[in-house]
Design a protein around this nucleic acid. Structure first.
Lengths: 232, 232
DNA sequence: CGTGACATTGACCAGCTTCAAAAATCGTGG
DNA sequence: CCACGATTTTTGAAGCTGGTCAATGTCACG
């Protein structure tokens, strides 16, 4: 899922049509005065299903996952969140999933009450929040066709392409994957064994190289083809 | 339910409280003066992927589906929309899916430009739009665990429970399904044959009765259990 | 009635899951 | 720094769910 596209340094609001002002500062910065830095250890919860939405967070460093559980333990990882992403703004009233730190995480925490109040008085912020929700809905829709209609191989390829797109800025070939195989499996709706097998298969085909530190994409074109994504 | 024609003075939505109710007068009525009634025939498109988001619509009567297609024809029905639902507000800039009339549909159409302008000047409307986006995100998250982790039987049961919940007001037992089996299959990430087989199976178990006009829920408790139970 | 779209049913089997176990990696303390 | 246990990942084998292909049945509508 491509939810990590906007970075902290970003200054322009996404829908240019709606905001013709030149180089307007990110409306999210309005929140900064009410922010507090928080650190969360690996695997620790950030919030749980049903908790009142007292806060929201902006990720400064690290990786976060949102998790939905079924009674019998079946798990769905909704999304991975990265530095710059906003967490906990989607839910109104009470959180409708869990959020957990995949790695050690540094967050900037804001009271939701302040966010809502500011959004009331600052249309630019309200618009920005709506734009972020819209972007998330678009990503989720892509994830739905992945979960519902793609084969295991296509799922893995799509996932790697997404992770690559997210981290184009950092390094050239290597895609670092801070989450484990179980997280990937539960994000793609498959078993850990199948994830492992298909990564091995892609490696055998010379398309990727599975390393300890992550996955090296040797043939991005082939990977993109396998992902079956026409858009972009 | 008749929606949207009356010119009711809107009341302030209380901030932070999710109020997507389709009954109470709300900020959406601000749009009414810019609305125009449109009719769309069964199976006809309302908008296509990539089209600029010139309009949005409120469904007055009928059923609408949003569709995402892959190059090879694989299809995902993202959601079904019903009277009172807002269509085409999720996308910014350009639509990122198709929308088609499942039945003959009556819509109330509004220029997006007006919606955005009104949202800028009326925080209540902006808040309402964000609440609707949030509600949709919550639903989509449920759909993701359905697609990724539920068995075919659980998918069908969940779907019927959803349809039932939506139409509690209408009749007591019968759930009308205006969409065909292919739509259901593509919504749940399975094949038409499996949809048909599992409906027959539920019928054989005395839990539902498959009728021409829809599906009669004979044992809602059993169905609700099936919707979330594990496979064994 | 005849026709076409849609739904159901059956037979087969491919892809993926499950169960099991080995291999690799991580973490911790001596 | 190494050894050892725990966790994670990989690999193997077997089985099942659900998909595909094909045929039949049903209904709406001219």
């Amino acid at each position: 899922m491509r939810v990590g596209m906007q970075s902290v340094q970003q200054t322009q609001n996404s829908p240019g049509v709606l905001n013709p002002g030149r180089t307007a500062p990110d409306a999210l910065n309005l929140l900064e005065q009410f922010g507090r830095t928080v650190n969360v250890l690996r695997r620790r919860e950030i919030y749980r299903l049903g908790e009142p939405t007292e806060f929201c967070w902006r990720i400064v460093a690290g990786c976060v996952r949102t998790v939905t559980l079924m009674d019998d333990g079946r798990r769905q990882v909704g999304e991975f969140l990265w530095p710059g992403d906003l967490l906990g703004m989607d839910d109104l009233g009470a959180h409708d999933s869990d959020a957990e730190a995949v790695t050690h995480v540094t967050l900037r925490r804001y009271p939701r009450r302040m966010v809502e109040a500011l959004a009331q008085s600052h249309p630019a912020l309200a618009l920005r929040l709506r734009a972020m929700a819209a972007a998330k809905l678009r990503d989720v829709r892509q994830q739905m066709i992945l979960l519902g209609r793609k084969t295991a191989r296509e799922k893995i390829a799509s996932f790697l392409v997404d992770m690559d797109r997210r981290s184009t800025a950092t390094s050239c070939q290597l895609v670092e994957l801070p989450m484990n195989r179980a997280d990937i499996a539960d994000h793609l709706g498959m078993s850990v064994e199948t994830v492992s097998r298909l990564l091995a298969q892609l490696q055998h085909g010379g398309i990727v190289a599975v390393l300890r530190s992550g996955i090296e994409l040797c043939d991005r074109v082939a990977l993109r083809d396998l992902a079956c994504e026409s858009r972009h």
